[in-house]
């Protein structure tokens, strides 16, 4: 019987999800404590440098969202199914959410460090382009219907978005620009151990946070899909009197 096997699987999934939420919450609180209480203030920039500890992990989470969107989109184009589509859509939403955080926290740091909020630096420009691609994906999914054709077109857009990821990552090394290179390429790194721990905690917390949000969003999308199928079944069986009327 499908219900007999599905129920324990579902409860195990719920337990893992609950543990994930608990661990993520604990890590976020530890990161906040470490960033504001333990990590020292940077010598040149001062307190505003602390934006770095959640700006960089947010960018990393945007990459996680973009990768999920790529995997979902590629999977959907190879073998169309609700699971791949849900993963692609959830990944795009995650990429837009964390991309928006990156594109607002970065300029707030720049206002102090550079004296202006925005410049058309290669990394800034490519990151903005990346977010706009996923915004286009979500606009397409939101307004162009939910048919097979629209889903495939969105999947192609999801793959195009992922093609931009290495360009963002290596833009700092290939084309100079003003964006700092502290932990990548020829960057000097973080000199204080507490700074390194703060960044490591930030990465761990945001990675788990991104996975938690992605999982919750995929589950919601799959539930929506199942409900739509049940509604169609109800109509086919002549049970839905809204159609009969």
């Amino acid at each position: 019987m499908p219900t007999a096997t599905a129920a324990p699987k579902k409860s195990a999934q719920d337990a893992i999800f609950a543990i994930l939420v608990a661990v993520t919450t604990a890590l976020i609180l530890t990161t906040i404590y470490w960033v504001f209480e333990r990590a020292p203030t940077e010598k040149v920039m001062g307190i505003v440098q602390k934006i770095f500890y959640f700006h960089v992990p947010s960018a990393y989470s945007m990459y996680i969202g973009a990768t999920a969107c790529f995997v979902g989109s590629a999977g959907y184009l190879v073998k169309p199914s609700a699971k791949w589509d849900a993963l692609g859509r959830a990944g795009a939403e995650l990429a837009v959410t964390f991309g928006a955080i990156v594109l607002t926290t970065g300029p707030l740091w720049a206002a102090k460090a550079w004296g202006y909020y925005w410049t058309w630096d290669p990394r800034l420009t490519t990151a903005l382009l990346q977010v706009l691609i996923y915004v286009a994906y979500l606009v397409l999914r939101g307004f162009a219907g939910d048919g097979e054709g629209e889903r495939k077109f969105a999947a192609a857009l999801g793959i195009l978005g992922a093609a931009n990821l290495p360009i963002i990552h290596f833009s700092v090394q290939k084309w100079s620009g003003e964006h700092p290179t502290v932990i990548t390429g020829k960057g000097g790194g973080l000199h204080h151990p507490d700074m390194k721990i703060a960044l490591a905690l930030g990465f761990a917390a945001f990675t788990l946070f991104a996975i938690t949000l992605l999982w919750a969003r995929v589950r919601l999308e799959l539930a929506k899909e199942r409900l739509a199928m049940l509604e169609e079944d109800a109509i086919d069986l002549g049970l839905d009197d809204r159609i009969e009327a």
Partner: peptide, 11 residues
């Protein structure tokens, strides 16, 4: 810098 940090964190 403190205001910008608070703004970034709030955002």
């Amino acid at each position: 810098g403190a205001n910008l940090l608070v703004a970034a964190y709030s955002v």
